[in-house]
Nucleic acid binder design. Sequence first.
DNA 1: GTGGTCTAGACCACC
DNA 2: GTGGTCTAGACCACG
Lengths: 135, 135, 135, 135
Amino acid sequence: MKPHVNFRSGVPVYLQIVQQVKAAAAGGALRPGEALPSVRALAEELRINRNTAARAYAELESEGVIETRQGAGCFLKANGVSPLKRAVRSDRLAAELDAVIVQAHHLQVGDDDLKSLLAARLEAFRERQQTRSAD
Amino acid sequence: MKPHVNFRSGVPVYLQIVQQVKAAAAGGALRPGEALPSVRALAEELRINRNTAARAYAELESEGVIETRQGAGCFLKANGVSPLKRAVRSDRLAAELDAVIVQAHHLQVGDDDLKSLLAARLEAFRERQQTRSAD
Amino acid sequence: MKPHVNFRSGVPVYLQIVQQVKAAAAGGALRPGEALPSVRALAEELRINRNTAARAYAELESEGVIETRQGAGCFLKANGVSPLKRAVRSDRLAAELDAVIVQAHHLQVGDDDLKSLLAARLEAFRERQQTRSAD
Amino acid sequence: MKPHVNFRSGVPVYLQIVQQVKAAAAGGALRPGEALPSVRALAEELRINRNTAARAYAELESEGVIETRQGAGCFLKANGVSPLKRAVRSDRLAAELDAVIVQAHHLQVGDDDLKSLLAARLEAFRERQQTRSAD
DNA sequence: GTGGTCTAGACCACC
DNA sequence: GTGGTCTAGACCACG
């Protein structure tokens, strides 16, 4: 697990880390119970401040993605049930989808093309998961 | 050209505008020489501060994407970004969709639900466009 | 709204602020839509660092208690529906109740006395709310 | 004397122990001269580090609440805290209950649900005690 | 003016 | 060694 970070993207560094850890967890590159790099190691690796790395992990913990144990480290949680209500989860996804739709509109990608693209990416995602879990 | 803005994404508003103008140029939705909304109109439309709208345009001008002519407005530069091929545009969208898929995984929203959600949001988007163009 | 803070209690300062804002909101001392002191003002008032005050507000926002608008300030949210599932909410309360039960046990306060005490405090709480809303 | 510890409360573990020993003394559950569990036993019981348990006892000793006699163990000081009156003990609990009530308000758990929850947790607590004393 | 992010460095709690 | 909190001060985004 080695996140990498783009300092010029305008996206806060700690959020970039959050997204990458989530992606690794979702894709099976990180297994439940597996340890993440320590806050200090991550900070050194990415050449960021320790506080920034800690903030990323704090955010991940509050979202229920990882578990942090004082003095021991941070570990990927088993992907339990999300504590959020179903409607709330849909709303959050909808907000993200809306941004994609706007971008598709500007790129003049049609609705049907966008739908097929989603289907294709979903398939690719599931395939990657299969491969990982077969390791 | 009607940018949309998400205040909660963590991405600075002015950057979201910049990215969308670029996308519109790349997708051909904006043609060379075509006019963009005035700073004042854009600010009103998006309910943002004029400074923010002005900053987005300043950034675009400094990157050579648009040209501002005093008293006349902002126009897409003729020798600006040329429209991208269809495949390239799909690739850009694919990256964004992948992020949504990761999020859906953590929110425990299934593939089919995600597809339905996309369809629903697309419909809502089209409807909003109808309303706006009827203004 | 003037929180006060105990630096020796061992409870993190930012959490003390969080709890006090929550209490004020629950008790009606803060009204929905009302502005909280600015991060800078709060920091000065409590003689804490600006970051610590900001962290308290960030936590409150992530819990859905307040809304923060860039450049405008922080405002108490209308007490909408909690985004958490019912079972999760009960679990969180149960954890807090357990701590009280342990304390009651050590203080040798019986089960029935504890139950009556809760009933009494609930009544007092509702009465305070009534008074406030009648202002 | 069986302290319980909550690792997620934000309050340092050693302080939780200190507070509970004090509460037990104040409530009369611990009598002057009575022995406390050994550092080793306490650490094992609570699954904490021996250093943490030792630190709690050191704090209690420095406050004059307990006395450690080399090779014999820790004992509540004869001239330590005297048991509090019933009313005072209730007051202490009331403050904790008030915090729970605030939390319940934000989690939108009704008064009756809260009362039932307390009853349920009390029952669970008594059951746990049975199990332990049967060891 | 507002809040948000990041850095640097200190100290604490815990294993 | 681990993570957590706090301070001090800089710079950015936004109204």
